[in-house]
Nucleic acid binder design. Structure first.
Lengths: 342, 342
DNA sequence: TTGAAAGCGGTACCAT
DNA sequence: ATGGTACCGCTTTCAA
């Protein structure tokens, strides 16, 4: 296994096989019109030289490639990491290569390159800015948790109802809510009817909370609602505020696992036993949900699956099909130890 | 359907500015030899047309780019995610673009492509297979936690000593150890003197454990050593074995946070108070270390920093410099609540 | 200081 | 079934 420094080109292979470059190209791309004998000769030449196509040249020349690009905010956010992982597994199955780029808010880089090099782009939680740039991507675009031509969303409302019904069925009537609304100041005052509003995770979960309460015939107590920004610290603070109330809630529905863990710890610091004296439900089912004691009851989002579906759609799109947009992905209640009967 | 945004080429700009394509190229690449007036004309033409270079074409033609590629195993492993994040931040600062690819063991994809497209590659925890492929990368290679031309490693031995000294100074003499050796069966029986052995994280941490004990004049009890594979479950099992011993240890040094959390929970399930009746120290300081109660005392690896340094080295390499390889990165003991005086 | 020519490594199109 | 030609968008080399 010697390592050739000089790059072997299609021409080299052609010469070695005694055919024209075009024929080699045809063999590589599996065009039918090549005599078996010739094809075989080319194939051996390829094997002997260790030739590998240069995707750059191929893309430049207008050929096809099997690359899908992923644009994501920070990768050390478990949410994004999970989606990417799911996408990666699907890509491998479909024989696509996945190329990931991190989009930082103040980055100036020209990401259109990777987009040009790929047959499709997967956008994870695209920001305003990303949405902007996505409109002039020359490829197909699918997004997870954010707008695009093909947006994949989770059923946040349904998930919230799942969590609330669990709490309700456990006999809780005083249920506090910690939202993630603080995180995105720019959407906080979006009119209720707008598309953006409808799609916003935080709002949908809030809506699930409110409507579940209403459906159960329970009054809404504005004091039971606090806003965090998805960090553990904000969850801690929000929970403290809730627990200091004259009549504190007996259960908390927290719309993010990190915040939920913060709330759980705040409760423990208050000397409250969880779930004995306070039940806590999170949202997301990030890995950290199992790292706590008691384990966090939470609403799981099918993150891996969504990543995989995104890639499948992109592959279909690349193949000229027009895949139908899947319905909001259903969530699942994962009952661990942080919830108990009132 | 694609957005048929006609691409503006360098030629278009040239025509508009009334100069040759070459001059436009020179302006873009900041070659000095262009008359200010001409440069200005070109610049306006660029602005007016909204032209952007096509990095593919540039790379193909042998021009320079500012891309660094990262090859990593699963991205949903916090370790890798942290390094990538650090690399991303540094890249942004240095005006490089980062492109990440996941290397799965059974992937057939041609990753040399991205390598060709980039000035350098960062390998995270390269596997045997990856090491192989890295040798014929046409670019500079820096690795984190694995071999390459420029390997970046953390001072695992020192970190283990940090943890052990902490436990020792707390008065513990019965200290159990859970290694990660089970994870990599192929290195388990590498001869002690070999390079590979010296570099292996798991072994280095083990060595720190043994030597710290020896230095403290404490006997080594083979029964106090268990092997896990870095998962929470394996940590749980290993801890159970340890705690069932006739004379169970009063403290555990676990060479991975996930395993440490597993051990911590196992102890709690045994009815042991942590840190009251059992102290636990982990290794890595992954985000989950703060998600548990009590918070996990652990040894922090400067993952973000290592990612950043890797990118800096790659940038230097690309600039033709020969950066000196940094010494093993120092670790830091993060004392939380899982350790206490015996 | 500027530009013409010749690729980089492929592919599409159209002959043969 | 095969191969010639043009060209993708840019950069290098070398003349002018």
């Amino acid at each position: 296994m010697l390592h050739e420094r000089a790059t072997i080109t299609l021409n080299d292979v052609a010469q070695r096989a005694g055919v024209s470059p075009m024929t080699v190209s045809n063999v590589i791309n599996g065009k039918g019109n090549v005599r078996p004998a010739t094809r075989q000769r080319v194939l051996t030449a390829i094997a002997e030289t260790g030739y590998r196509v240069n995707p750059l040249a191929r893309s430049l020349a207008g050929g096809h490639n099997r690359i899908i690009s992923v644009f994501t905010p920070q990768l050390n956010r478990p949410y994004a990491a999970e989606v990417v992982q799911g996408a990666g597994e699907a890509a491998e199955r479909l024989n696509y290569d996945l190329v990931v780029m991190m989009l930082s808010p103040n980055s100036t880089s020209d990401f259109s390159m990777m987009a040009r090099l790929s047959v499709g782009a997967l956008l994870i939680q695209p920001s305003r800015q990303t949405q902007q740039f996505s409109t002039d991507l020359p490829t197909h675009v699918v997004s997870v948790d954010g707008p695009s031509a093909h947006p994949l969303v989770v059923d946040n409302y349904g998930g919230a109802c799942l969590a609330m019904n669990h709490l309700l069925s456990l006999g809780h009537t005083e249920i506090g809510f910690i939202s993630g609304l603080e995180a995105e100041p720019d959407v906080k005052d979006v009119p209720q009817g707008s598309d953006l509003y409808e799609r916003n995770d935080a709002h949908e979960r809030f809506r699930g909370y409110r409507e579940s309460l209403a459906l159960a015939g329970l009054p809404q107590n504005a004091a039971y609602v606090q806003h965090g920004n998805f960090t553990k610290e904000s969850g801690e603070q929000a929970a403290q505020a809730l627990l200091r109330l004259p009549v504190p809630p007996t259960a908390l529905f927290v719309s993010g696992d990190a915040m939920a863990l913060g709330a759980l710890h705040a409760a423990q610091d208050f000397g409250l036993r969880v779930p004995g004296e306070l039940s806590v439900v999170g949202f997301d089912d990030l890995p950290m949900a199992t790292a706590s004691r008691p384990g966090l009851t939470t609403v799981r989002q099918p993150l891996l699956h969504m990543g995989a579906v995104a890639v499948q759609m992109l592959a279909a799109l690349a193949a000229g099909e027009e895949p139908l947009l899947p319905a909001p992905f259903p969530t699942q209640l994962i009952v661990r130890e942080s919830t108990a009967r009132r």
